[in-house]
Structures are given as structure tokens and as C-alpha cells.
Nucleic acid binder design. Structure first.
Lengths: 147, 147
DNA sequence: ACATATTACTTGTTAATTGCAAGTTAAAAT
DNA sequence: ATTTTAACTTGCAATTAACAAGTAATATGT
């Protein structure tokens, strides 16, 4: 069987080495960032909750995006100890580290489009760093409870 | 003909009022941000240059994305006074204001993936604000030349 | 002036992805 | 034991993307 090196199944290669391209390949679609938003800002963690997002995601697309977010190490799934039907999806550190990206995208849209959720926008404008560290703090607590 | 109010052709409605969703609807695909990257960081401005991007965009997709970026007010097209065949695509203020979004996406990917362009990443890590204001400054000059 | 080359596209055609509706499986609640 | 609930999967039509080729309007070289 000495056919070659033993390797982990390799991830499909990227289109380029550019870091922006890496982000785009992981997050550049119409749903991934909205799922992360719902986890980060609204505290959603189950499939059912994600299905209730304002934008109306289709169930097969949600399943596909959760799979890809897991494959990219942005979220993890763990089964709920108190209800065997439930899976809890949680942000990894890599996922939590998207807080500055989401913040800048929110601020950009709010500056140039008519958008809602002005309280959040105001908070971000007043103290971006505080909002980001708040998100990180809340996730630290959340994870220590659930693990 | 008094059939209704005279209105500008209204943009198709957003899926939600959420500012993040607005950003995702304008930028959430596999190409738009790469085109903006090439304008912002590599100084590209013509169709031909965009076609040479590392990731290999198809010509019909490029035409479509440029159209959408114009429709969203992120770029403008103006014909080159010294060569009637050429159109120069330029970032608007709204487009230039994406610099912080791109920066955070680059930093995130560089922190969590194996990526190239380390000199740019290092610059961004050392002084994010300086890189962003550099981009804005260069675009101010560029636009004053070409208009 | 005329042939050739460039630039910025458009037009098929095929392949992949998305959105929608309905169905499935395992665990929990009644 | 039956019904509900949670998290999916499957099938199919519609939309979008990728690939190859072609076109119109300049511009350039001889």
C-alpha cells in the first residue's frame, strides 16, 4: 500500500493566496454572514431559531451553510445535554473574531443606505471597540456555560 | 394618465431592514469585493485590467458585477478622454468607504488561514488606520487627476 | 486609406446553485 | 401509544455562474 503520503483529506484549493479572497470564499454568499449575525447579536443557536431569521432562509440552504461554516472552523455543533433532539451551534474563536468584520459592514451600510436597527448602529458609532469586546465577553460566558 | 405618483424606478426591496443584510445584498457574492480590492489596492480601473485578476473572472460575470456596483453607487464609469475605447471605473466615496471592511476581512483571513501578501497584512496589523487613510488619500489624488 | 489590433462588451450553451414543497428520522412530550 | 418537535433530506423548477465564441466602436501601423 505504499502509494503516497498519508494526508488528511485536503481542502479544495483556493482560487488565489490573497487573504481577501480567502474571506470571500468562506463568507461571500447571501446567507453565511446573516447566520453569524444571528448567533453573535441575537444569541441564536439552534436550527429552528436560524429558520426564523427575518430574511427567510430555505431549509436546505441553511443545512448547507451550517455544514460549510463547520468545515471552515467558524462554528461547531454540539448536542444539547438536556434535549437529545437539539444541536447547539456555537461560534468558535475564529467565528467570534468576525465581530470587527460585521461591525464595519453594519457601519458602512448604515452610513450609505436607509437601514433599521439604529440603536445598534448608534452604539457602534459611539464605541466600536466596546461593542466588539462586549460580543467577545458574552461569548466567553456562553461557552463556559455550555461546555 | 393620472394613474399614480411619478416615482423614480424603485430599487427592488431588501429582504430586511438590517444594515448587515444591506451590505450582504450589495457585496455578498464571490466577485464584487475582489473587483473593489483590485481598484483600491492595485489601482486597476479598466475592464481589461479586471479581467486579469488572479482569480480568473468570466467576462459576462465581470460585466454584470460592474453594472451592479454602479447601480449601488459604489463605483462610476467615465470614458477616457485620451482613448475613446476605454472606460475608467472609479470608486465613489461610498466605494472608498469600504476600506475598513476590506481591511478587517484581510486581517481576519490572515489570522486564521494560510494566506499570501504578508507585507500588506503586516502593514495592516501595525497600523490599520494608516493603511485606510493611505487608501483614501491616494483616491483623492487619483480622482482629482481624472475628473 | 486600409488592414489589423484593442477595448469593452454580448450571446449562446452547459453546469452548478438556489429556492420551494414535501417527506423522513429520532427523541420528547402528552 | 400517539402526537409533536427538531433537524434535517429529497426532488424538482428556476435562477445564476462558467465557458466559448462573436461583435461594435475606436485606435494603431503601413
Amino acid at each position: 500500500m505504499a502509494r503516497g503520503k498519508i494526508t488528511k483529506a485536503r481542502k479544495p484549493k483556493r482560487r488565489s493566496e490573497c487573504p481577501l479572497n480567502a474571506s470571500v470564499e468562506m463568507l461571500g454568499d447571501r446567507w453565511s454572514l446573516l447566520i453569524i449575525r444571528d448567533m453573535m447579536l441575537r444569541g441564536f443557536r439552534t436550527y429552528k431559531e436560524f429558520m426564523e431569521c427575518y430574511e427567510g432562509i430555505a431549509t436546505n440552504i441553511l443545512a448547507d451553510r451550517l455544514r460549510k461554516l463547520i468545515a471552515n472552523g467558524i462554528i461547531v455543533a454540539e448536542s444539547d445535554p438536556s434535549d437529545g433532539r437539539k444541536l447547539n451551534y456555537l461560534l468558535t474563536q475564529k467565528g467570534i473574531d468576525l465581530a470587527p468584520v460585521l461591525t464595519e459592514m453594519v457601519l458602512w451600510a448604515a452610513a450609505h443606505e436607509h437601514t433599521g436597527n439604529q440603536p445598534l448602529v448608534r452604539q457602534m458609532r459611539e464605541d466600536k471597540e466596546k461593542v466588539i469586546s462586549g460580543v467577545k465577553q458574552r461569548w466567553k460566558e456562553r461557552r463556559s456555560h455550555s461546555i
